[in-house]
């Protein structure tokens, strides 16, 4: 059952559950961060409205810099501004930032140890009809491997707002992954959120048959699958890992101990993402059977988000199959 302590959306199972784009939470969070802390500045590469930075720009035009379509410059200019005491947020589509400007992020932001916050919008396959060039499904991997980088993948717009606000105080480089499409609102204002602390959103203390570890908008599908199995007397827990790095090792270890079999779920390549992070950690501590739900080393294509999630193996039926399969491997 839903973990009451998480104070999730009481209308979680409603057919017409409220849906809001995750990127919108970022835009609101940035505006609030700008109001609270005057060191916050915003930089964008010709996508100010799509990335929701326009809310900040409209309120603080003198703290906003239009960089033009130049993502490499975007990253390094932000590094320079951080060197002068600002907390810069940079935005574009995830494919271009951090996709195009990876080395600039690595050297001028992380190697310099400068607290730049990178918001990558339109991440995941569900950006849909724009097609494979625009579907960032490698971003978690390429951000996770850079030392010092904190990597956050919120499950809904409320979590995105909290993550954005909390990033300002970290004094570290941060990557926040955002989705374009409207997605179900899972959490509430009262839900706990702390960077680096995973939330057990489904299930209670003690043993269960399978643990699902999910991130981003797919947390919602994971919850639905868990509810379905629980009705069939198969106990499933769901851990929402919004912070991919640093990974909440304690929570992952506990889930592995309680369940003995895990499924990871992400809208990302299986290589290098959340599943990899979980497997890297567990294989050194308590090797646990894991099934990975994600993209299997292929590029995406045009289609509706639902068509693509089904085709590339991230639909509810695929999560269900993974749960069945991993149970047999116990």
């Amino acid at each position: 059952m839903i973990n009451k302590l998480q104070k999730l959306n009481p209308k979680l199972w409603d057919k017409d559950i409220e849906q809001v784009p995750i990127r919108k939470g970022f835009g609101e969070g940035l505006l609030a961060a700008g109001e609270l802390d005057e060191r916050v500045v915003g930089l964008c590469a010709d996508l100010t409205e799509s990335t929701q930075m326009h809310l900040f720009r409209n309120k603080f035009p003198h703290r906003f810099i239009e960089i033009g379509i130049a993502e490499q410059n975007l990253a390094s200019v932000a590094s320079g501004m951080a060197a002068m005491g600002k907390v810069p947020f940079i935005t574009s589509y995830a494919m271009f930032s951090p996709g195009r400007n990876w080395e600039q992020i690595r050297t001028t932001i992380c190697y310099n140890n400068r607290p730049v916050i990178i918001a990558g919008s339109h991440a995941g396959i569900s950006v849909g009809p724009d097609g494979g060039t625009h579907q960032a499904i490698e971003d978690l991997a390429i951000m996770r491997v850079i030392p010092k980088m904190v990597v956050i993948s919120p499950c809904d717009h409320i979590e995105a707002r909290k993550a954005t606000l909390a990033s300002v105080g970290l004094k570290a480089p941060v990557y926040i992954r955002l989705a374009r499409e409207k997605t179900p609102v899972i959490t509430t204002e009262d839900s706990p959120f702390e960077i680096g602390k995973a939330n057990l959103v489904y299930g209670v203390e003690g043993k269960a048959d399978v643990g699902i570890i999910a991130t981003g908008a797919l947390v919602y599908r994971a919850l639905k699958v868990a509810e379905k199995f629980n009705k069939e007397k198969i106990t499933v827990k769901v851990l929402n890992v919004h912070t991919i790095k640093p990974l909440d090792e304690k929570a992952v270890l506990e889930l592995a101990k309680d369940c003995g079999a895990l499924v990871t779920v992400e809208e990302h390549q299986i290589a290098g993402g959340l599943g990899s992070a979980v497997a890297e950690y567990l294989s050194q501590h308590i090797p646990t059977p894991i099934e990975f739900v994600g993209v299997r080393d292929v590029f995406g294509q045009s289609g509706t988000p639902d068509e693509l999630l089904e085709y590339y193996g991230m639909g509810e039926s695929h999560i269900e199959e993974a749960v069945q399969k991993v149970m047999k491997r116990k």
């Binding site: 009809p129 724009d130 097609g131 494979g132 045009s302 289609g303």
Partner: peptide
């Protein structure tokens, strides 16, 4: 154009 499995991808492929 832009439909699932179309040769005419949203951006050329």
């Amino acid at each position: 154009l832009r439909k699932f499995q179309s040769r005419l991808q949203g951006h050329p492929h």
